[in-house]
Amino acid sequence: MTNTVALITGGASGIGKATAIKLASLGIHVVISGRRRDVGEAAAKEICGAACRGGGQGSIHWLNTFKMM
């Protein structure tokens, strides 16, 4: 699934985070969004670490949607 990007709202916790880990481990580039920067950045690091341990070649990015409101 090269050149695939997934945007996951609520990707910093729960089902969204689990989905982000799975997709990133499959090599998909993942963008997670949310309102709390500290939680989102910590989740992005955790997701990236988990995906890399699983052999994934994807990337993870945090999008702060609070600033967009």
Rank of each mutant, 00 (worst) to 15 (best):
I60M: 10
K17C: 09
A43E: 00
H29L: 11
S59K: 08
T2Y: 10
H29T: 14
G16I: 00
G49D: 12
V5T: 13
A18M: 04
G40W: 01
G40A: 03
G16M: 00
K22A: 11
W62S: 04
L23K: 03
A51Y: 00
G14M: 04
H29D: 15
G27Q: 02
L26A: 09
A18T: 03
D38H: 10
K67R: 13
G34N: 05
G56F: 09
T19C: 07
H29P: 12
G56E: 10
T65L: 15
A6N: 02
S59G: 10
R36V: 11
G40E: 03
H61D: 07
G27A: 05
G56M: 08
G10R: 03
R36K: 13
K67V: 12
K17N: 09
G27R: 01
K22F: 06
I32P: 10
G34R: 04
N64M: 05
G16D: 00
S33A: 14
A43T: 00
V5F: 08
M69V: 12
V5E: 09
V5I: 14
R35S: 02
I21R: 01
M69N: 13
K22N: 08
A44K: 04
R35N: 03
M68R: 06
T4C: 13
S33W: 07
I8L: 06
K67F: 11
G40Y: 00
S59I: 04
S25R: 06
R36H: 14
V5M: 09
T19I: 01
S25T: 09
M1F: 12
E41N: 08
